[in-house]
Amino acid sequence: MNPIRKLSLVLAVIAVAGCAAPQVGSEASSLDARTAAALASSFTGAPPEWLQRLVQDDVQAQCSTARGRPSGDVAGAIVLSQQAALKYPDSGLMGDWKNGEKIAQSGVGLQFSDKPGTVPGGNCYACHQIAKAEIAHGTIGPSLLGYGKLRGQSEAIQKYTYGKIYNAQAYVPCSLMPRFGHKGILNEQQMKDLTALLLDPASPVNQ
């Protein structure tokens, strides 16, 4: 089966599954089917291995349907499933804040314009204020200036911080922040370095 047909099938199955769910009316499910058809027809020039990106996982589908504001039950279920999928390093959660700063600055990776093999950055500054010296920061996420100074460096705080980078939706369902560990965007060392950027007393974040 060629990849487009395969994708159509996957998307069609999702649409049919939507049909079966009691809360979805027939109008909504036919709209889902048409949306799936639009997606299936719109990327015919893309490499087949890229098409899987168009297929939603459960959390993506739930957050899309809820327009980012899930009801209590759905929100609770998302937090539980994402908490259960958290993975921590065997030892130590704090890496090198200097590397963390580089990772926070880097916005490359996983775009079709990137050279294959490009190591993805975290692009944290796109959305957050972090170190004071960097004024070209976005405002979609909260300011993280003084993050460690406010919270200290206890083991619980380290675990929370690493976990939040690994999968923000384990804490905030339908968060706008990418699930950097859960989706394999950043590796363990990179996430440890970012944890250090936020928590290390020597980091510019905490000066």
């Binding site: 957050c63 996983l110 699930r179």
Partner: peptide
């Protein structure tokens, strides 16, 4: 509103 891909 369609969330997908590695970055959601």
């Amino acid at each position: 509103h369609y969330r997908a891909g590695p970055y959601d």
